[in-house]
Design a protein around this nucleic acid. Structure first.
Length: 487
RNA sequence: GGCCCUAUCGUCUAGUGGUCAGGACGCCGGGUUCUCAGCUCGGUAACCGGGGUUCGAAUCCCCGUAGGGCUACCA
């Protein structure tokens, strides 16, 4: 089994592109086949210089390693189409010699006029009228001698039909009469996708073409080319598109966002892979959370659904949260630290104490994270002195008249502690509550607001244990001075 | 306009002629608890419509309808 992912470097790959890559990769890994990366840079106008590096970075981030392709090489290279022009020319000439292709000298203006006229007259297909296909050998020679610019077009059989058994959607067939003679070689000497794709898939020994649904209508053209060459076509599997919630069309907001944006927001690659795998494929049972190794084991073409699927950010967030919660403390620290750095909570090169504070505080907010990017906000009060006080929290828990007594006694109890840890802090708080004949919660809430500025967050005792005695006392003093009436 | 694809809870999906149509996200409620989150228990919610075929259709066929794709010297 040999499959390929063949993006064109004309933009930054999004979820749809990467899902296609993922399915190819999963299929190859499942079968023990080869996953090939091929860069289809045949559009000289639209090719972006940084698109290929970005693409490779995205694949690497998601863990989709390629066995052959740019950087790693391979026996069927080069793997960049712009480096294979001689091959396309040679094979185009071969097709011309066989009478399966011909040179077309029609200027663009004529093409456009023809298209408009056919559309107006409702003549199908709307495309090229095969003007140059009808010439005699003498006329061809004449044109060639004149040295006019030309494209090479494929001579679609005038009758019959072309079909294939799609691995995802069953038998699909087209009447050849619906197909116009498409361009194989452009006038700039570059091949079109319709040609390079077929040539390379054959030369690279691709056995299964797993690609997006947008290619369905051009598949008969590809099949006809295989036929003209006398080549065995691969198995085709056409994936449905990913759509947006509500509206449908892909927008820049979700599915069409450059995939690395998700990294910036703190999505874990294995979570995104899990999510993408589920977006149009199912292992059959009720499995939801699957690590890459499990996906590889369970993946099959049969499990791919034929209908489009909507990109559901809520579900991605849930899956990401599941993966974040599974992170071991050391991994959590390494993965979340960059977000704390970017938010300015720790230095770009964190000090030893910053690292330690991060290592101790991050596990406390771990359960609450859906994206690592939320870590700075959730853990901020551990790093900033004084913390930011939420006015509503202050109003509710520090303003009432009994707040002073509670906080003063709690502070005094804390001061007396020799050992400062979760257990001693808890004991002290509960003792204060007992002395005041209050519920523990009545002491806990004001103390939390005084120490963190918020009503929400990790358990108070573990929070204070991490914050330390000194900073806890300083914050309570500070809160007493600033917010608590009756001083 | 033409050709092609698709159609199960709001969303992702299981289902392959006989099921109380299952699971997950979300949402709602209970429990745990110092809050939030998490965890946990429970609930809400679907076979696009109409014809067939069949003893019996979510499952097979046809026709609608709806959504999507393609219709470039872009991929």
């Amino acid at each position: 089994m040999r499959v390929r992912f063949a993006p064109s470097p004309t933009g930054y790959p999004h979820a749809g592109n990467l899902r296609t890559a993922l399915y190819n990769w999963l299929f190859a890994r499942h079968c023990g086949g080869r996953f090939i990366l091929r860069i289809e840079d045949t559009d000289r106008e639209r090719t972006l210089p940084d698109a290929e590096p970005y693409l490779k970075e995205a694949l690497r981030w998601l863990g989709l390693d390629w066995d052959e392709g740019p950087e790693v090489g391979g026996p069927a290279g080069p793997y960049r189409q712009s480096e294979r022009l001689d091959i396309y020319h040679r094979l185009a000439d071969e097709l011309i010699a066989r009478g399966a292709a011909y040179r077309c000298y029609c200027p663009r203006e004529r093409l456009e006029a023809v298209r408009a006229a056919r559309r107006a007259a409702n003549l199908h297909p709307y495309g090229y009228d095969r003007h140059c296909r009808a010439w005699s050998e003498a006329e061809r020679q004449e044109r060639a001698a004149a040295g006019a610019p030309f494209v090479v077009r494929f001579a679609i059989p005038l009758a019959g039909e072309t079909g294939w058994e799609d691995a995802i959607r069953g038998y699909i067939t087209y009447s050849n009469r619906e197909l116009d003679d498409h361009v194989l070689l452009k006038s700039d000497g570059y091949p079109t996708y319709q040609f390079a794709n077929v040539v390379d898939d054959h030369l690279m020994g691709i056995t299964h073409v797993i690609r997006a649904e947008e290619w369905v209508p051009s598949t008969p053209r590809h099949l006809l080319e295989y036929q003209a060459f006398g080549w065995e076509p691969p198995v085709f599997a056409h994936l449905s598109l990913i759509t947006e919630p509500g509206g449908k069309k892909l927008s820049k907001r979700l599915g069409a966002r450059p995939i690395l944006d998700y990294r910036e927001e703190g999505y874990l690659p294995e979570a995104l892979v899990n999510f993408l795998a589920l977006l149009g494929w199912s292992p059959g049972g009720n499995r939801e959370i699957m690590a890459p190794a499990e996906l590889i084991e369970l993946f099959s073409l049969e499990g791919i659904v034929p209908h489009p699927s909507t990109f559901d950010l809520e579900k991605l967030d849930w899956i990401n949260g599941v993966y974040i919660r599974k992170l071991r403390p050391a991994d959590l620290l390494e993965r979340a630290l960059p977000f704390l750095q970017r938010a300015g909570l720790v230095h770009t090169l964190p000090t030893e104490s910053e690292r330690e504070l991060a290592a101790r505080s991050l596990p406390l907010v771990q359960d609450r994270l859906r994206r690592l990017g939320e870590a700075p906000e959730l853990a901020e009060f551990f790093f900033r002195d004084p913390p930011e006080y939420d006015p509503r929290a202050v109003q509710k828990w520090l303003d009432p008249i009994e707040a002073r007594a509670i906080l003063v006694r709690t502070r005094d109890a804390f001061r007396r502690l020799d050992q400062w840890n979760e257990a001693t802090v808890e004991e002290a708080v509960r003792r204060v509550a007992a002395e005041l004949e209050m519920r523990a919660a009545d002491v806990i809430h004001p103390t939390r607001v005084a120490a963190t500025g918020r009503t929400e967050g990790p358990g108070l005792f573990e929070t204070l244990a991490v914050l330390g005695k000194e900073r806890t006392l300083a914050r309570i003093e500070d809160a007493l001075r600033r917010f608590v009436p009756g001083g």
